[in-house]
C-alpha cells in the first residue's frame, strides 16, 4: 500500500504536492517536496541549517507563493494564509507586538472572527491559562523571558483555534531547560485542543521526541530524503522517551541520513 492511500484513510488535513520554490529567477531553495499531514498528527521536518526550512513553511502557509506545485488544506488550494493554519515564528521577539500586553497580543487575531466579545475573551483567557501565563497577562512581551515570550506567541496561535499549527524552529532561541518545557507544553496543547502540528527543526532529538512521523530534508535545493514513522509510546516523557532504545535507534538513523549528504539525481 502506498503512503498516499494510508494517509487518505487516516483523514489527511494538509497535502503538499511537488512543491518547488525558487527565489526570484535565481537560487533554487526547494527542489521538489511532497508530504502530507493527517488530522491530529504531529509531523516534523528535520534538515540541516540552510535547507530552506523556513521558506518551506512560509510557502505551505501561503505567505510565499510556490514556484510550482501546490498546497492543499482540507482539499482546498492554499493561495493566501487560510484561517485554519497558523505559523509560529522562530523569532518571537519580532513576531509579538511590543506595544500590546500579553492579553492584547493574544486577542489581536480574534478581531476578525465572528464571535461575541465574551467568547473572544474566554478564548484569550483559556489560551493564556493553557500556556501558564495567567499571572503575566497584563505584562508586555519585552518584560518576559524568551521562553515566556514564545509561550505568548503559542497562546496567540492557539486562541485563534487553527486546525493545524506550523512551528518554525520555535524553541531554537531558548535555553535547554526552557526548551524541554516548551516541547512538553506543545504536546499538551496538541492533546488538549486537538491541534495538528507541523514542526520544522534542525534538532533531530526534538523531532523524534515530539513526532509521529519525521520527514528528513536534504541540503538545498531541498528534497525529502526519507519519511520515518516514530512508533514510540504516548504520552512522551523527556527522560523515559529519550533513553528508550527505539528513540536512540531512530535518532541515529536520521543523523546518518543528514550526515551523509546523499547523492542526488537532478530533477527532470
Amino acid at each position: 500500500m502506498t503512503n498516499g492511500a494510508v494517509a487518505a484513510r487516516r483523514d489527511r488535513v494538509l497535502e503538499v504536492v511537488d512543491l518547488q520554490k525558487r527565489y526570484g529567477a535565481g537560487t533554487l531553495a526547494i527542489e521538489r517536496i511532497s508530504l502530507d499531514v493527517c488530522r491530529g498528527e504531529f509531523v516534523s521536518i528535520v534538515g540541516p541549517s540552510g535547507a530552506g526550512k523556513t521558506t518551506l513553511l512560509k510557502t505551505i502557509c501561503g505567505l510565499l507563493a510556490p514556484t510550482s506545485g501546490r498546497v492543499l488544506l482540507d482539499d482546498k488550494l492554499v493561495t493566501a494564509p487560510p484561517p485554519e493554519m497558523v505559523l509560529v515564528f522562530q523569532d518571537y521577539a519580532r513576531s509579538l507586538f511590543p506595544w500590546l500586553t500579553v492579553t492584547a497580543n493574544v486577542a489581536f487575531p480574534l478581531r476578525k472572527k465572528r464571535l461575541g466579545a465574551g467568547e473572544k475573551a474566554s478564548l484569550v483567557l483559556e489560551a493564556i491559562d493553557a500556556v501558564g501565563l495567567t499571572a503575566f497577562a497584563g505584562h508586555y512581551p519585552w518584560q518576559l523571558s524568551g521562553g515566556m515570550q514564545q509561550r505568548v506567541a503559542i497562546a496567540r496561535a492557539v486562541a485563534f483555534r487553527p486546525e493545524i499549527l506550523l512551528l518554525d524552529e520555535p524553541f531554537a532561541s531558548v535555553d535547554a531547560l526552557t526548551r524541554a518545557d516548551l516541547e512538553d507544553l506543545t504536546l499538551r496543547l496538541r492533546a488538549e485542543f486537538g491541534i495538528t502540528m507541523l514542526l520544522v527543526t534542525h534538532d533531530i532529538d526534538e523531532a523524534v521526541y515530539l513526532s509521529d512521523r519525521v520527514f528528513v530534508l536534504s541540503p538545498p535545493p531541498s528534497v525529502i530524503v526519507r519519511e520515518i514513522a516514530v512508533p514510540l509510546s504516548q504520552p512522551r516523557e523527556q527522560e523515559r522517551t529519550r533513553s528508550d532504545a527505539a528513540f536512540l535507534a531512530l535518532r541515529n538513523e536520521i543523523h546518518r541520513l543528514i550526515g551523509q549528504h546523499p547523492e542526488r539525481t537532478p530533477a527532470p
Binding site: C61, A80, R94, S95, P109, K112, F160
Partner: peptide, 18 residues
C-alpha cells in the same frame, strides 16, 4: 517595521486597513 511583524499580521488574515 519588522517584516516578521507584517508576516504575523498576514498570517492571521489581517486586512490591509487593519
Amino acid at each position: 517595521v519588522d517584516p516578521v511583524t507584517l508576516d504575523t499580521a498576514r498570517n492571521f488574515g489581517t486586512s490591509g486597513i487593519d
